[in-house]
Amino acid sequence: MRLLILTNTVDCLGENDAPLSNAFRRLGCEVVLGELNAIAADDYRFFTRGVLLAQDGQSYHPGSAVVGHRGTYYLDECQLIWVMNHPQDRLFRDVWPMLWLASQHTPFVNSIEGLVFLNPKHALGYLLPKANRAHSYISNEFPLLWERYRQNSHQRWVAKPPNSTNGQNVFLLSPNGSNARVILQCLTGNTVAQESYGELGGFKAEYAILQEFITQVAQGEKRVIVACGKAVAWHGRQGHPDDHRSNIVQGGKAIPVDMHPGEIELSESVGQKLMAHGINFAGIDMAYPYILELNLANPGGLYDAQLASGVDRSDQVAELIVAHFRKSSS
């Protein structure tokens, strides 16, 4: 089996690129690391630049540069493709359709439809039972979100964009907070100020989510990695003392934790629903019994769980995925 991992750059591997490319090679697979933002077509046959990794036992680590000759690799010559990031903003209107077209002939670990439509936070209401998600309001109109906040200003809220990652622009709104109004204006595009001054430039509104704050977060948040519907790795996330966010890139720390049966059952039930839409690898942010977010494109957690626990689960992930697709093709 030849696996093509499409990533942002082969000069600095990510936290999934490195351990998973090692694991698939240990299984005897050929692994090509290709550039996601260099997808092109020759008479509508799609290819990219990439490097075929040598089967020489060399292990890569996050931050490593791939050693080898860069060549051209056609997507239809691979037996499995893994999109390990989002295309750059300037390119996604072209890259996503080309990848979808390629997926009509070659299996993808995570389906293009799932990555495009289920990765944003809008999808939580579809994927999660009501008992396992926070009540949320989604709009690109400041007055609507502001009115919802004012009606329940005695409680804490979280405000954030629906498509952000790594804790970007995630705000904690305090009860009757003096900054709540300006934060919601900012997240929805500051349309009030622009209209007041008659600025030109077209449509300015942006979507934002106003979400009830989950008190269970204070007791500890967990990142769970689910592969082919199985919870395979997890770690706790200890937030920075000066920040309400626990994201690792925002100063949070991965810590070893146990998972009780209810948490595993909930993670795997969500994993099974994701599989029905072609998503076979995902990261779940949980403060039981609530799921806070689902991360489908390059979810961190597998490598962080290894650092926290000392156990590398990448071989188990590779085995589950290879077995799933071999079964599907038989």
Rank of each mutant, 00 (worst) to 15 (best):
R2W: 04
R2T: 15
V10E: 01
V10A: 03
D11C: 06
N22Q: 10
A23K: 06
E30D: 15
G34E: 06
N37F: 03
I39C: 03
D43S: 14
R45C: 10
F46L: 15
F47Q: 02
F47A: 06
R49M: 05
G50A: 06
Q55W: 01
G57H: 09
S59H: 03
P62Y: 10
A65D: 05
G71Q: 07
T72Y: 01
I81P: 00
V83R: 01
N85G: 15
H86P: 00
L91M: 10
R93Y: 05
V95G: 00
P97E: 09
P97Q: 07
M98Q: 09
M98F: 03
M98K: 12
W100M: 08
L101H: 11
S103Q: 14
H105K: 14
L115R: 00
F117G: 02
F117C: 12
K121T: 12
H122S: 13
A123K: 01
K130W: 01
H135G: 00
S136K: 04
Y137V: 05
Y137N: 01
I138S: 06
E147L: 03
Y149G: 02
R150G: 00
K160V: 13
K160S: 11
G167M: 06
N169T: 04
P175R: 08
N179Y: 12
R181K: 15
R181Q: 14
V182S: 11
V182D: 13
Q185M: 05
V192Q: 10
A193T: 04
Y197N: 13
K204P: 04
A205Y: 03
Y207Q: 10
I209A: 02
F213K: 02
Q216P: 00
V217M: 14
Q219R: 11
G220L: 10
E221F: 10
K222M: 11
V224D: 04
K230H: 14
A233N: 07
W234F: 14
G236L: 11
G236Q: 09
G239N: 13
H244K: 04
S246P: 00
V249P: 00
G251I: 12
K253F: 08
P256D: 12
V257C: 15
D258A: 15
D258H: 14
E268P: 10
S269G: 02
V270I: 15
A276W: 00
H277T: 01
G278C: 08
G278Y: 12
I279D: 01
G283R: 02
G283V: 09
M286D: 05
Y288D: 03
L296R: 06
A297V: 15
G301L: 09
L302W: 05
L302F: 08
D304Y: 15
Q306D: 07
G310W: 04
S314N: 01
Q316S: 07
V322M: 07
V322D: 00
A323Y: 01
H324S: 11
S328G: 04
